[in-house]
Design a protein around this nucleic acid. Structure first.
Lengths: 201, 201
DNA sequence: CCTTCTAGATTGACTCGTCAATCAATCGGA
DNA sequence: TCCGATTGATTGACGAGTCAATCTAGAAGG
């Protein structure tokens, strides 16, 4: 009963996804070949097509898998009975921690999807917008409660906030600025301080 | 004397560059063919290779041509004897006006270069960083003069500022938010108000 | 004013390498 | 024995870049 057909001893699918993260992070989606993923996973070329419809589907799966966690996290944070600044701080913390714990996957997500607005970004626009909308809701509620000034459109505010964090991740990914536990903490505090500072009354 | 060898009646090179802007904006760099550019320019396929070494060189040329204008503008603005907030307002205004006047070119620059951090963004990193550095200098001077609080790293501050504007352009490019003269003015005011609000003492 | 002449401009069919995707064959556990 | 898992050689499409041929406009010469 330990391993049935539905749960084989080795999860090939997972193995291929994990290999794809490393390969996409190292070479980029467009300049890697499916054979690179297969070799990295230690499986035959054709097996990738047994588990996935196409090369694109591998990336789509990686993105959706992770992004749904982000959306769930933001919703959970928003439900907490804490001030808006603390909510945004928690959201920034979640995203930055995601990078801290799995920089390769976050690199792939940011570089190949989130910032690739006219290829995969297009495909996943609805999911990406959901994140913006959730952040905009936090801002909007904060304005209604009087914590934030109400002369800044929440839609714009969510763009400044998410944009600042994404810019940060990009800078770490491409080693424009040093990365490390100290920098992660510091950057989170500064981005929240700056953006919330500008949004609060 | 009106037209010599050095200055032909029709500037084919320009004609090809302009066609490339439209094609890149419409289809994206990777999913367009060189033949698309040639057809759009009303020119034979091979002529593109007479004026440019490769498809990539066409994009590089478009980017560098425009980015150097941006760098010059920021430097000129920084030299003006005005307060830091007015400088950042002018920089935001310049970038947003660039989009207003030539949305297709700006779309290409943002989507294919600036946000494409692991393809063309890599190639042009030095030029892109120059813009960050110039903005960071404005912030740094503002901190030295006491106008801005000095507990936010100017490098980070320049990322928040530029990142917010880039996010805005992206949103207009992909029609996530409405674009128009009113929105352009409004967005400029709001981004400067929010970011400077967070950076000032 | 007409005729070569020549260099650069212009043409587009063709070459050549690269992969994504397929598929027939083989394996291995229940 | 059977069926899904696994293999990897093969196919087929695609598109960047090449190149030999052709054109054109001004220069040189008569």
């Amino acid at each position: 009963m330990a391993s049935t057909r539905a749960e084989p001893a080795v999860d090939r699918r997972r193995q291929i996804l994990d290999a794809a993260i490393r390969v996409f992070a190292r070479q980029g989606f467009h300049s890697c070949r499916v054979s690179d993923i297969a070799r990295e996973a230690g499986v035959a070329y054709g097996l990738v097509y047994h588990y996935f419809k196409s090369k694109e589907e591998v990336l789509n799966e990686l993105f959706s898998e992770r992004w749904s966690l982000l959306l769930a996290a933001i919703e959970e944070i928003d439900a907490r009975p804490i001030p808006p600044r603390a909510k945004l701080d928690a959201v920034a913390g979640f995203i930055i921690d995601s990078y801290r714990h799995d920089p390769e996957l976050m690199k792939v997500i940011v570089v190949e999807v989130t910032r690739a607005a006219n290829s995969f970004g297009r495909t996943h626009l609805p999911e990406i917008r959901q994140a913006y909308d959730l952040i905009a809701k936090i801002v909007s509620d904060a304005q209604a409660s009087g914590a934030f000034r109400d002369d800044v459109d929440p839609t714009y505010a969510s763009m400044w906030f998410y944009g600042a964090i994404e810019q940060l991740l990009s800078a770490w990914v491409f080693e424009l600025i040093p990365a490390g536990d100290g920098e992660f903490e510091n950057a989170r505090e500064m981005v929240v301080e700056t953006i919330c500072g500008g949004l609060e009354r």
